[in-house]
């Protein structure tokens, strides 16, 4: 489990999906500040926009959920590893428990996220603001992010886990 193995074709596909999500969230991260600065300056001049507030919030939500693939890959999600440090022999079993719990949780996030987006879509719910954004669009960030969590964790289980906090691209 802990030794790094050569990725198979299947794993490569999963990794590619993870990279796509990572790419999207990183691009959003780079541009996120721009509309906020634009809005702040316009407001200072007396012309506030009505779209920045909401769209940047949704962009942030996408960064948060889609960034999961990256966060898993970099071991950024915080774990308490005290037992594994005290009993190094238990580490493989604990890693397995941890990974399986993440998979289960990812399934919960994906299924409930799909349900939520479907609920917004089938009831044609939009935000009660001047922008009237159909809510299923930002809702979709949840199942997609859950999918990233799932896929990248499977990759991790196949190829070994990064050390906590280790940076590797």
């Amino acid at each position: 489990m802990s030794s790094v193995q050569e990725p198979t074709g299947f794993v490569r596909t999963l990794e590619a999906a993870g990279k796509l999500m990572t790419g999207l969230s990183v691009v959003l991260m780079i541009v996120l500040a721009l509309p906020i600065v634009y809005d702040a300056l316009l407001r200072a001049l007396g012309y506030p926009t009505i779209w920045v507030f909401e769209t940047t919030l949704y962009a942030f939500i996408f960064i948060g959920f889609l960034g999961n693939a990256l966060a898993v890959k970099r071991g950024a999600h915080f774990r308490v590893t005290i037992i594994a440090q005290l009993f190094p022999r238990a580490k493989p079993a604990l890693d397995m428990i941890s990974n399986v719990s993440v998979l289960l949780f990812a399934l919960l996030v994906i299924s409930s996220g799909i349900y939520f987006a479907w609920y917004s879509w089938s009831n044609t719910i939009s935000s009660s603001t001047l922008l009237e954004v159909p809510l299923w669009i930002p809702n979709l960030a949840i199942p997609i992010g859950g999918l990233g969590l799932l896929l990248q964790t499977i990759v991790q289980m196949c190829c070994g886990m990064p050390e906590h906090g280790e940076a590797g691209d």
Partner: peptide
């Protein structure tokens, strides 16, 4: 370098975001 900075920031943001949610 900007890309690298954004990658690290994205991983940290996602970590915090999941904790918050």
């Amino acid at each position: 370098k900007l890309r690298e900075a954004a990658i690290v920031a994205t991983a940290t943001t996602s970590m915090l975001f999941m904790l918050i949610v």
